[in-house]
Design a protein around this nucleic acid. Structure first.
Lengths: 211, 211, 211, 211
DNA sequence: TATGAATGAGTCTTCATTCAT
DNA sequence: GATGAATGAAGACTCATTCAT
C-alpha cells in the first residue's frame, strides 16, 4: 500500500520521467480513441491500458477531459501530418492524377477521423476546446484547403491548368470526398471500393468545370 | 405512491388523450434532440420537459431507445418533408438557379440534421434502427438523390442541359453542401452567410463541367 | 375512456356478477401461481391474464397480497381435496400397497405444492396469513397426518397390523416422501423415477419396524 | 462527489485491509441472509449494514448475485462444518443414541438452512450456482448422507447392528428430520421441543425395521 | 363499478474523482 | 509522486397503487 513507482512508463532515455508518464497516458488514450467512442472510454480503461493506477491521471491533468483533449490533439496532428506528407508536387505526373491523389489522401484522413469526430460532436465542450487547439497549430484545417489552392495556382503558373478562379475546387473536392467517406459509414451496405472508383469521373468533371 | 393526473398534456381537440401523451413525449424528445446530444438526454430530462412523471414513458414505449427512435424518425420526416416541399420544377427559372435552390434546401436540411446524425454514430444500435425506419418510408435518403437526378434528366429532355452523365452532379453537389454545412459547425466562428454565398460559383463550375 | 363492463368474467348463471369477477381473479391468480414464483407475478400479469383492467383487483381486495392469499388458499384446498379423494380404504388390498398408495398421493401433493411453498417462504407475512387460513379450515395439514393414523388404527382393529404405537409412521412416511419430492428439485440430475421406486423398501422397513 | 475512507472495516490485525472489506461484505450479507429472504435484501441494505458506501460491493464482486452467492457458500460451509463436528464415533455409546445424535445435528442444520434454501428456490440461477459451488467442496450434501452409511456399516462390522441393507435408513432419517424441521416453520405455534422429543421413538422404529 | 394512464419511490449498476498511505 | 479503495450522484427501468372519467 505504500507508494510505488509507476510500472509501465519505460521512459525514453534522457526524458524527465514525469513527462514520460504524462506522454504515456496521452499515447494510450490516443490508442483507445481509435477503438471506442469517447463516451465509452472510462478513466479506468485508460489506467488499465497504461498499466498505471487509477488516480495518476489527476497528477498530470485537471480531469478526464483534459487528458482526452490532449489525446485528440495528438491524433489530429498525426493524421494531418500524414496527409501533408502524401501531397503531390506541382508539375509531376498529370494534374488529374495529382488531384485524385490529393483526394485519396483526404479519404484516408476522413476515414480514420470520422468515428472520432462523430463521437466528439456528442461532447460540445471537448469539441470546441479541440477546435481551438487545432486552429492554433500550424496544421489547421484551413491550411489543408489552402494547400490545395497553392498547388492549383502553381499548376496554373506552369500552364497545366486554365487561369480561372480555383476556389470552388476546394469545396467540391473536399465535399465529394466527404460524401464518399461518410457513405462508407452510413450506407446500409458500405461499398467503399465502388465509391473510391467514382472518384476519377468526379475529378474529371471538376477539371472540365475549370475550363 | 400517490398518482396524480398528468399536468401538461393539453391534448389537441378531438385527439385521443392517450395518443396525445404519447405524441407529447415524442414532441418533447424531438425538441431535446435539437439542443443536446442523444447520450446526454436522460429519461428524467424527458419527463421533466414533458412535465410528466419519470415512469410514463414506459407506458408508451418499450425503452428509452424506442422513444428516442420515434423522435428521430419524426425529426427526419419533418426535415425531409420541408426539403421536398422546397424543390423547384424543371423548366422554371434557370437551371443554375434551380440547382442553387436545391442545394440551399440541402444545406438547411443538413444544418439541422448534422448534430443529431453525428451524435447517432456513437449509438450503432439506434442508428441502424433509424436507417431501417427511414429507408422503409417514402422520404428515404435514396429518393432525395434520385430526385435531383430526375430533375436533371427532365431538364435534359427540355434541352436546357447537355445530354451527358449526370451522376457525378449528385455527389459533387451533396458533397459541397456537406462541406458548407459542416464548416458552419467546425469553424471557430461560423460564417454561414459567406459559405452560402460561395454556392453559386460552385454550381456554375459543376454546370460547366457537364458541358 | 368511459367506464366499461369487465370483459371476461363470464359469470356462472345465477351468480352475483360482482362475486363472479372476484372468483375469476382468484382463479386466474391461482393459475399463475403454478407457473411462476409469487414475487415474479405482477398485478399487471394478473389483470392481463384475467382480461380485466389493472385497477379492478382493488375493488375486491385490499391489495395484491390479499388476492394472492385467496389464491393460495384455493390452491391448497384443491390439492388437499385431491389427496383426500385418493386415499385407500382400510381392509382393501394389502396394508403395504395402501401405504404405498398413501405415500404416492403425498408425493403428488408435495410435488405440486413445493415450488409455491418455497416461493412463499420469501414472503413471511403472506406465509403466516396463509397458515392461519389453512389451519382454520377442515382440510388442515394436521388432519392429513391424523387421517393416516385413523387408517392405521382401523387396520389394527381389522387385525392386519400389530397393535403398537403408530404415531411414528406418520412422521417417517411424510418425511421419506418429502425427501423424495425435494430431491427431485434439489438434485443436480433429478431422477424421480428411481426415487419413487425406492418407496416400497422404505414402506417395508417401516412396517417391519412396527412389528 | 467527495470520497471518504471506509468507516467500519476495522480489519483483524494482520489482515490485508482490502481482503478485510471483502470479507466484511460477505459477513454482513451472510448475516442479512438469516433475517430476510434473499429477494428482500437490497444492495443498499448491504451497504448500510456494512457501514460502507453504495458502490463498494462492485469493487469486489461482479454483481449483487456474486456477493450473495459468496455469502450463501459461507453460510452453507459454516453449518455443514458444525454438523460434521458433532457426529458420533461408531462403537461409542449406543447405536440408538448415536443415531439420535446424528438426527439432532441434522435438525439443527436444517432448522437454520431451510428458510434460506427455500428462498433460493425462487432464484434458479443463484440456486444452481450455489449447488455447483457446494458440490465442488469437501462438505457436499452427498457426503453427508454417505457419512451416515459409513457409520452404520461400521456398526455392522462391530456387530452392533444386523447386517441388512442400510440404504433406507438414510431416507427415513433425513425425511423425518426434514418433517420435524419443517414443522417448526409451518406450525402456527412452532413447538420444536415436542417434535425433537418425538425423535427417539422414530429412531427406535427405524432400528426395529432393520432387524 | 370498471377502466387504465399516471405516479414515483425504489432497484441495480457505473464511473469520475478524491485522498490516506 | 503513485496508489487504488472508497465514494455517491446519477442513470434506466419496474410496478403496486390511485383516481378521474
Amino acid at each position: 500500500m505504500s507508494p510505488r513507482r509507476a510500472k509501465a512508463v519505460g521512459g525514453r532515455v534522457g526524458d524527465d520521467p514525469a513527462t514520460a508518464l504524462r506522454e504515456h497516458l496521452v499515447d494510450v488514450t490516443e490508442g483507445l480513441l481509435s477503438h471506442a467512442p469517447i463516451s465509452a472510454i472510462t478513466t479506468r480503461d485508460i489506467a488499465r491500458a497504461a498499466e498505471v493506477s487509477d488516480g495518476v491521471l489527476y497528477n498530470y491533468f485537471d480531469d478526464k477531459t483534459a487528458l482526452v483533449l490532449a489525446a485528440l490533439v495528438r491524433r489530429y496532428q498525426r493524421l494531418a501530418r500524414r496527409f501533408y506528407d502524401s501531397l503531390p508536387e506541382a508539375g509531376s505526373a498529370t494534374v488529374e492524377d495529382n488531384i485524385v491523389a490529393f483526394a485519396s489522401g483526404l479519404i484516408d484522413l476522413l476515414d480514420e477521423a470520422l468515428p472520432t469526430v462523430a463521437g466528439l460532436l456528442t461532447e460540445p465542450v471537448l469539441f470546441h476546446r479541440l477546435l481551438d487547439e487545432v486552429h492554433r497549430g500550424e496544421l489547421s484545417p484551413q491550411r489543408m484547403q489552402a494547400r490545395l489552392g497553392d498547388y492549383l495556382r502553381e499548376e496554373q503558373r506552369l500552364g497545366r491548368l486554365p487561369k480561372v478562379d480555383v476556389a470552388p475546387v476546394g469545396t467540391l473536392l473536399m465535399g465529394s470526398v466527404a460524401v464518399i467517406a461518410l457513405s462508407s459509414h452510413f450506407a446500409p451496405m458500405p461499398n467503399r471500393a465502388a465509391l473510391s472508383a467514382g472518384l476519377r469521373p468526379i475529378v474529371a468533371t471538376i477539371l472540365r468545370g475549370l475550363a
